[in-house]
Simulated assay, not measured.
Amino acid sequence: MKGWKPSDRGYRLWPGVLLLVAASSASARADEAGLSFWLPGLQGSFAAVPTEPGWSFATVYVHPSAEAGANARFPRGGQVDVGVDGRGNLFAFGPTYTFEQPLWGGQASLSLLAIAGRNYASVDATLTGPGGTVSGSRSEAITGFGDLFPQFTLKWNDGVNNYMTYATGNIPVGSYDPDRLANLGLGHAAVDGGVGYTYLDPGTGREFSIVGGLTYNFENPDTDYKSGIDSHIDWAASQFVSEQVHVGVVGYAFHQLTGDSGEGATLGDFRSRVFGIGPQIGYKFEASDTTDGYVNLKGYYEFGAKNRAEGWNVWLTLAFSPAAKKPD
């Protein structure tokens, strides 16, 4: 809005708000068992904007729902599932610390996020054994904790232009069983890195963000399955309609660059892709004299899927961070 400055309370946003949930949806996403480390939609508005130094805390609820028809096959632990349906009610939560001292002219942050929640999955049939034995329909649900996700970000500001780079990964400590349909962990480690850009004009209240990255997956030691290299782009655009509220649109593109491999990759290459788009609304509020709060609701409708279940997902974020210093 007109007259805003980077230090205004209505402008400063929140470290860790959009770092979030990376991998634990059981809704047949990509790679082995239809699960990828990167959950599309992870990044969003203001992704590259520097934030106030100090501790912040974010909680994110994600509800994914996706399915694939009876002709779609997904590898899982040496078996092949046919006709997948998955839903989840997942929470990502954890702290972020933003350093006051600049690093290479930018602002550094460290985060550690955990996953908890409930996943449900079902299949029409499972093909097992060298002879292709067919077992009937099956469904499972699990409630518990998922993997851990550390992340490092570095951000720079130059007027209305903001830049960032990040590195994150998966520590596979979550609830996982290769013979189970529903899991809250991946069963293998992964690393992911990328860059981002945010255009934010305080004078007009217009904002556009885009973040792109690559995921390298390590082999799952329980299944001898190594998922390929994944690429992903998340983007968002919004307009402030007041000093506290912004509305806009969000989207993503996910594409697997290299095929799956290893003895457990019985379907061969199995490269996947999917696209998503939907609306968003965000609200900034003053939680106390020293703390700002932020609520964001966004949703995605998926399309163009290949070797991947397709559906929709909803994200609800609640975050608290240090308030911007008031001008003297």
Rank of each mutant, 00 (worst) to 15 (best):
G83N: 03
R118N: 11
G299Q: 01
F275Q: 08
S209E: 09
T215V: 14
T266H: 10
F254H: 00
L267Q: 08
G304E: 01
A28C: 14
A66E: 01
G282F: 15
R273F: 06
M164G: 11
F320Q: 04
D201Q: 15
G194E: 15
A70S: 15
G41S: 05
Y176M: 07
A190S: 15
G304S: 05
A23Q: 00
V241Q: 02
S242F: 03
G117E: 04
E52A: 12
L267F: 09
P327M: 09
S45Q: 14
N161K: 11
A237M: 06
G10K: 02
D222H: 01
L297F: 13
F208H: 10
S288M: 13
S242L: 05
G213Y: 04
V62T: 13
A125H: 03
G105N: 07
A141I: 01
Y252P: 01
D147F: 03
F218E: 12
R73Q: 09
W55T: 11
D292H: 12
K226S: 14
G278R: 08
R118W: 04
G69Q: 10
G248Q: 00
A33I: 00
V17E: 14
A33L: 00
G132P: 01
G77L: 02
S56M: 14
F254R: 00
P130F: 03
G203W: 11
F320N: 05
W14R: 02
S261N: 01
G251Y: 02
